[in-house]
Nucleic acid binder design. Structure first.
Lengths: 341, 341
DNA sequence: CCATGTCATGACAACGTTGTCAATATCCAT
DNA sequence: ATGGATATTGACAACGTTGTCATGACATGG
């Protein structure tokens, strides 16, 4: 029932090809003809059919967004950023949550790209940090762009948007040190995310620069989850010489720390300062609100998507480049000078 | 580069059509031929091309998911439910966040469905509760299924999955009353969601059944946001005869109430009981954890998607029916008997 | 043995679009 | 006026798949 190009052509009294030209903004169409075609398009409510289009032309009109992340705030922000660019550029967005540890992930993504004729994929961490996977996709001719954690452009030939987690973690740790804390606990994020060691590095570097010795007992492994934050904090708070501040590798972990502190009857921030990372809405909504680092996630995803699309038309490729983002320290109520003992 | 049906046909020494028959599990293919084709498919890593397929056959292979909701937990759960069924049934999922109040939303969705050749759309609230929109889509021949708030099957001809918010809100209010509360504040959700009046109705019905008079001063309008929860709670707590419990229409609102109580130096739950609605992860992670109503959101979305797909092949339509879900009371630490004054 | 029906298979057209190329019409410089 | 370049347009094939119909082989029943 939907109008096709044939209907438009008939109504405007031109050939199919001319309609195609008008639709695709090709040059060499007389203004009068163009107007007639556009009028017909409008009257019939014609919309080009994406299947036919991507079947015929090599171009594709959908982009895949690949992620494996338990944090809904993060995912929504990434989707939002990617989607806004897709709409602007006339692409569809195919979401593809997956399991980063799935054995045949490479095959899965190649299949996805071929079957759905994706123009390319945006890889969020941790998939973006798996060199074997990247190479596999590249060999299969799948266009891609990566969002990853690094303090500098990796400049390895594949396009990326990188986030300087180390830098921001340094700032958070420095903030705690300047408040007067010297015993600062650190809760690791998931090891499969490269952001985890980066954030740890920021913590370690700041301690080092301020001449504070690292204490192994204050450093606890985990993943990016609330539960691990809770458990880790319980362990730290049970120490004889317990920390006066805890830096959780993301806001979920920090939320766990907050809950553990509350469960132990402590008054945050006076008995314990807590800092997170990500500036997820939770960090604003908890009480006290969390000191954290603001990641412009949606913006990062936007840039990544632009980069991917620019890459498709090689001519535009020079306009847009790899870009780095550095999260920014946000001080809220969960951090304060340590109580004197 | 990806193998096409032609390649498979050549390799297996059969015609295109025979390969098509094997791929689509049509009858009338000799086992020996079928094996030869399958072997060729396997060797070449052939995957049917979705664009070509949906161009040629009337069938479509993607479903749209339409929502307008600020709550990331909710969205992720809906996506997850819909996606799991889509994968199982070989469909793609196209997400479409939108603005429920956009003036040309109907046109927007029809365009989406036609352009992307969607098999149908899953409508989440509040789009699912807009009769004009539903009719518009139906007239345009767009298959749809609704997820909506109602205490019974609306049975109006369009398929739906309905959630009995009234019932669950009644349970929550009853729980508070049984703890001994009589002054119970109520914070409304957004008026464009039908769940809002349903939840209010549950609150009002419970008060009525227990012979407690409604007090207009204890009832505050708002939308489903943290900020409105915060503001609403501040208003309630400033009353001379303030409530001993507050029921927020969702967890975000309840989080706002929690923050306001904290800001006022109150000890939850002893100075004030707080209940939310939705069982979002926040409700587990706050301190104290929130009493709330568990909505099986992912499961609801799953059922809705199944319903939509069943509808496509009319033969299956009788297997799956409209279904109701009732959220279940989850009691956690944020509610307790009121302190004696 | 013939008429009829069923099974397995293939040839061909069609879905709606765009790429290629050729056919005009128009314009400019000689 | 003439040749050549350029702008505008259309005819046709092609993308990869599936629907329709035709064909031939074989079996069944009289």
């Amino acid at each position: 029932m939907a109008a096709t190009m044939k209907d438009v052509a008939a109504r405007a009294g031109v050939s199919l090809k001319t309609v195609s030209r008008v639709i695709n903004h090709e040059p060499s169409v007389q203004p009068a003809t163009r107007d007639r075609v556009l009028r017909a398009v409008d009257e019939l409510g014609y919309r080009p059919d994406l299947s036919a289009r991507s079947l015929r032309s090599a171009r594709a009109y959908a982009i895949g967004l690949v992620y494996d992340n338990p944090n809904p705030y993060y995912i929504i922000a990434v989707q939002e950023g990617a989607l806004s660019v897709c709409r602007e550029m006339g692409f569809g967005l195919q979401i593809h949550p997956c399991n980063a540890r799935a054995p045949r992930l490479g095959q899965e993504l190649v299949d996805l790209a071929e079957r759905a004729r994706l123009a390319g994929v945006v890889l969020a961490p941790p998939m973006s940090e798996n060199p074997r996977l990247i190479r596999r996709l590249d060999e299969a001719g799948v266009n891609l762009v990566r969002i990853l954690s690094a303090s500098a452009d990796p400049d390895d030939g594949w396009p990326c948007v990188y986030v300087d987690d180390r830098d921001a973690a340094y700032d958070i740790t420095e903030h705690l040190i300047q408040l007067g804390h010297t015993r600062i606990g650190f809760l690791w994020g998931g090891k499969e995310h490269r952001s985890s060691p980066e954030r740890f590095k920021g913590y370690a570097d700041a301690l080092h620069d301020y001449g504070i010795a690292q204490d192994k007992k204050l450093i606890v492994e985990g993943d990016y989850s609330f539960d691990d934050g809770f458990r880790g904090a319980r362990r730290l708070l049970a120490l004889k010489n317990r920390p006066t501040a805890i830096f959780g590798s993301n806001d979920e972990i920090a939320a766990g720390v907050l809950a553990a502190a509350r469960a132990a009857g402590m008054d945050v921030p006076y008995d314990l300062s807590i800092a997170g990372f990500e500036d997820s809405p939770f960090s604003k909504q908890s009480w006290p609100a969390l000191t954290t680092a603001r990641q412009a996630t949606a913006e990062i995803a936007q840039h990544a998507t632009r980069l991917l699309i620019a890459q498709l038309n090689e001519s535009d490729a020079t306009d847009i480049h790899n870009e780095g983002f550095s999260p920014e320290l946000v001080v809220r109520g969960s951090t304060a000078p340590p109580k004197l003992r």
